[in-house]
Computed example of a mutant assay.
Amino acid sequence: MQRALSGHSRIAGLEVYLPPARLDTAAVERRIEESSPGFRVPKGLIGRVTGIRSRSVMADTEQASDLAANAAAKVLAECGLQAPDVDLLIFASASQDMVEPATGHMVAAKLGLSCPVMDVKNACNSFLNGMEVADALIGSGRYARVLVATGESPSRAVRWSVPDFPTFASSFPGYTMSDGGAAVLLEAAVGPGEADGAAAGIVATAFTAKSSHWSVGTLAAGGSAFPRDPEASYFAMDGEKLKDAFLDLGSELLDETLEGLGLSWTDFAVVCVHQVSAPYRQIFAEGAGVPPGLLVNSVEEFGNLASVSLPLQLKLAVDSGRAGPGDLVALVGLGGGVSLGMAVVRL
């Protein structure tokens, strides 16, 4: 477990970009059947198991960096900033344009930035870890303004041609995924010696992992293990084992973080939780003791957006008036590998 009191940076801007093309779950089932002679998806199965009705799909001409750059450009415009105002760009995503170079370079080039860049990668917790890194760097005095951006392109790794049910089951996570981008601008919260517990900023971050579960969900292509194997270019996951791995993480990290801050879930305006499906959202919330009314339901209409899930939920909460200046919000992330993370933020 790793937990740190922060308060070095605040969220100055937050934006999300979702490609306009939509794909509903019935269309997903039809496409599998059209691409898989001899195999039929049990009608309505994907919707019943996941609760997902629709998802976003990027254009053939778009890359993960485009999704991130679109969201980041919106943030810069919202904050009235120009390229020279950004000190560091962190691309924090499960997706990438290519193995080399870092996708952050592509995002920076599309935004016209000339600042340093880096990639932070930890499956669906990438964006949360990116915020943690940015907060620490701002706290150290290294940078004053950091742009954290993600672009998730999982539609490129979906297996549509399915020979049998076991292959369909192992490829199932791909049918829940959605494309999108998000960006957050973090900047120094207060001057030295001016820290105030009620001031806007990242109050605390906490992370834990049980890496012995890494093999239950993979997208293996492109690395040293499977550099050119086409079969490794699709999602492969054991859904039940992944659920068990997440349950194995427990909720101690969350409990200890709240206790250390003297908080309970009811102190938050909203609790944003990474959502792989509607049923698992409920299972996780019940296990962690999160009141259902604090959740921001997103997976039904937007699908599993990987690392974009948390910033999307926060954006939905702010835009709907459920959270605003002065409110405490919690971001709770789950990522393959597996890992659990939490950020407590005062808006």
Rank of each mutant, 00 (worst) to 15 (best):
L14K: 02
G44Y: 10
A343Q: 11
P279M: 10
V276L: 12
A209Q: 11
G336F: 05
V270C: 03
G326I: 12
A157M: 07
G262I: 02
C115L: 10
R228C: 07
S211K: 08
M106E: 13
I90T: 04
G130M: 10
L18G: 05
L147K: 02
S170L: 12
K241L: 15
T50F: 04
Q282H: 09
L253Y: 04
M131W: 08
D229N: 13
L295T: 00
R281V: 11
K121P: 00
V162I: 15
G104V: 14
K315N: 14
G287E: 04
I32E: 03
W160R: 06
G260F: 06
F226R: 12
L137D: 00
S95E: 06
T61V: 09
Y280C: 00
L347E: 02
E286S: 11
P42N: 10
V162N: 04
R40T: 15
A220N: 08
S161F: 03
F168E: 02
A169S: 14
N304G: 04
V49Y: 02
S54F: 04
G51I: 09
A278G: 04
K43L: 10
I46A: 06
S233T: 06
V338H: 08
F284V: 11
L340E: 12
A195W: 14
L81E: 13
T208C: 15
T257K: 01
L185Y: 02
A317C: 09
G262N: 05
R322K: 15
C79K: 11
S320C: 11
M177T: 14
P279W: 05
G293L: 00
A64V: 03
I283D: 10
Q96C: 13
D60C: 02
E132C: 11
G193C: 07
I11M: 14
L186K: 06
V49N: 02
L316R: 15
S126G: 15
S114A: 15
L18F: 07
E256H: 07
E132V: 13
N70H: 12
G141P: 02
D97G: 06
G193M: 10
G7I: 06
F284W: 07
A220H: 03
L334V: 06
L263W: 00
F268W: 00
G217Q: 08
G223T: 05
P311T: 13
G335F: 01
L111P: 01
S264P: 00
S233W: 06
Y17V: 01
S298T: 09
S54G: 09
